[in-house]
């Protein structure tokens, strides 16, 4: 390959690959490629949104009940954090276009910082759900000790702060484990369903899913809420995975920017990484209202 490539004499432009005639062609190709990748990503998340739609349409009140137990404050804060990171990313591209290395580096570092903050908040939220026995995976909630942990959860206990059964036994403490099999548990009431029923929102179809013998069946209802938490974890989990990939991309970009690769003539990697970062932001813009803010108006 190299023998032929070297025979062509348009290799003076930095970063120009052998198959292209000039920088313009290369940048156009990379840009279209990135957009096609984003189209692919949109359809990838689209499948999840379809599943969300079908199940939310079927169990609206269970979704609202589950959503009410998510912390809208943390969710909102994360939205803001991500928007700030999008701003710093946009500015990183701006400074790359201007060829100002120092501001580029600062903006990339800031983007990484806010990205990490986002993941940190996400970890806090996940831990909270864990401590509340709301992991929709059978057997993963064993450490939940019901009321005691629910109390402690207000202070955001991390998994290692909650003693396991064995450790507690070693300490000679006596505890009642309400959930020895580690099932998903919904101990947070059914007010929304009842309110919805009085307000006339609850259709006969929906009642079939929650009711046994004319009243709410806690187990049936719990299964529907569990579905919400499953979708919540898959959607946010996949989003967080994209954030991690984005952070790795930023780390690479930071190194490249640090050694001064990007100039006003060659900055397309910054721009392309920016497109990816903004895309992940957009996904969250939709996830926030669709996951965190359902049925809030019922309780207030």
């Amino acid at each position: 390959m190299s023998t032929h490539a070297d025979a062509h004499d348009h290799h003076h432009e930095p970063g120009l690959q052998h198959q292209f005639e000039n920088m313009k062609q290369q940048e156009e190709s990379v840009s279209i490629g990135m957009w096609m990748f984003l189209v692919q990503e949109i359809m990838f998340f689209g499948g999840l949104f379809t599943a969300y739609m079908v199940f939310r349409w079927r169990y609206p009140m269970a979704f609202a009940e589950g959503s009410n137990h998510l912390d809208a404050f943390w969710g909102g804060l994360n939205t803001v954090v991500l928007i700030v990171s999008s701003l710093t990313m946009a500015l990183a591209v701006y400074y790359a276009q201007k060829g100002i290395r120092n501001m580029q580096v600062i903006m990339i570092v800031l983007t990484m910082f806010f990205g990490t903050v986002f993941l940190g908040v996400k970890a806090i939220e996940y831990t909270d759900k864990y401590n509340n026995g709301l992991i929709p995976v059978a057997g993963w909630n064993k450490k939940s000790t019901g009321a005691e942990v629910a109390e402690k959860a207000q202070a955001f206990a991390f998994p290692w702060e909650v003693k396991t059964e064995a450790a507690a036994a070693k300490d000679g403490e006596k505890k009642t484990y309400v959930n020895p099999r580690g099932d998903f548990q919904w101990n947070y009431g059914h007010e929304l369903v009842k309110q919805a029923e009085t307000a006339g929102y609850l259709t006969a179809d929906e009642k079939i899913h929650y009711y046994s013998n004319g009243q709410i069946d806690p187990f049936k209802f719990q299964e529907k809420v569990r579905m919400f938490y499953f979708i919540y974890f898959v959607m946010t989990g996949l989003h967080a995975l994209h954030m991690v990939v984005g952070l790795l991309l930023m780390a690479w970009l930071l190194w490249k920017a640090w050694i001064g690769t990007f100039t006003a003539l060659y900055y397309s990697p910054v721009e392309m990484s920016g497109l990816y970062w903004h895309f992940v932001d957009i996904v969250w813009i939709f996830l926030f209202p669709l996951l965190y803010l359902l049925g809030r108006h019922f309780i207030h």
Binding site: V39, M43, L48
Partner: peptide, 13 residues
């Protein structure tokens, strides 16, 4: 590009 990601997410689910 438009179809394959949907089956990917389906298999993932």
């Amino acid at each position: 590009i438009l179809g394959t990601p949907v089956v990917a997410i389906t298999i993932l689910l």
